[in-house]
């Protein structure tokens, strides 16, 4: 066949009734959904490893001896999902002050959660003598909770970046979708915590 590079030819071969609206999903949303999908697969393996090793440690300390229910931290992290939505709504309405307030509050709650994790780990290591090398409980616990905490850190970095840029006036109203994506990610981190909470602090303590 001869040269076909004039794509106009193809387009001409398509009858005009094909003029119907052509709409594709937002690439940011699809991207974040897929990111969450693949992260879910990653967490699943760590959760499975944790569940598999429940009651398989050859020596203590065991979860029921040393773990305490992190009620306050959980409340803080879960409510940060609400504050981030309020912030996002404020952003849509272009209420920048309200946005900063609630966005900042989200970060404070996230930081509080991280502080709790740091304190918990410190206690476990220095009071209870549980390190990652102590037994399979230690290995799976620090790996799973640590993996989640590292996601909280990433989320906080994203939140913080937006916060600073917005204060400096670099965040424009047409970037609402990016704000929304960060909040999606933050919801994901929260949902993972619910799973971690159930598996680590409820199931393994009572097993």
């Amino acid at each position: 066949m001869s040269e076909l590079s004039d794509v106009g030819m193809i387009n001409q071969s398509v009858p005009p009734e094909e003029e119907a609206e052509w709409k594709l999903p937002s690439f940011r949303k699809v991207g974040v959904i897929l990111l969450i999908l693949t992260e879910t697969a990653l967490f699943t393996i760590f959760v499975v490893a944790y569940l598999f090793y429940i009651k398989k440690s050859l020596n203590g300390p065991y979860p029921q001896d040393v773990l305490e229910l992190p009620i306050l931290a959980t409340v803080a992290l879960l409510s940060s999902s609400i504050t981030v939505v309020i912030a996002e709504r404020a952003f849509m309405k272009n209420a920048r002050g309200t946005f900063h307030l609630w966005w900042g509050l989200t970060m404070v709650l996230g930081l509080f959660f991280l502080g709790f994790t740091a304190h918990e780990w410190y206690t476990l290591i220095y009071r209870d003598g549980l390190t990652i090398a102590t037994n399979v409980f230690g290995s799976t616990f620090y790996a799973l909770v640590g993996l989640h905490a590292s996601h909280v850190i990433i989320g906080l970095i994203l939140l913080g970046l937006v916060f600073v840029l917005s204060l400096l006036g670099h965040v424009k109203p047409d970037q609402a979708e990016r704000i929304e994506m960060i909040s999606w990610y933050w919801h994901f981190v929260d949902v993972v915590w619910i799973v971690v909470f159930i598996v680590v602090y409820i199931i393994s303590r009572s097993a």
Binding site: Y53, K56, L58, I132, A133, N135, V136, S139
Partner: peptide, 14 residues
């Protein structure tokens, strides 16, 4: 690197 026991059969790993 950190001496974890995921696959350490001596410490109950599988």
């Amino acid at each position: 690197y950190l001496g974890a026991n995921f696959f350490n059969t001596q410490a109950g790993g599988s």
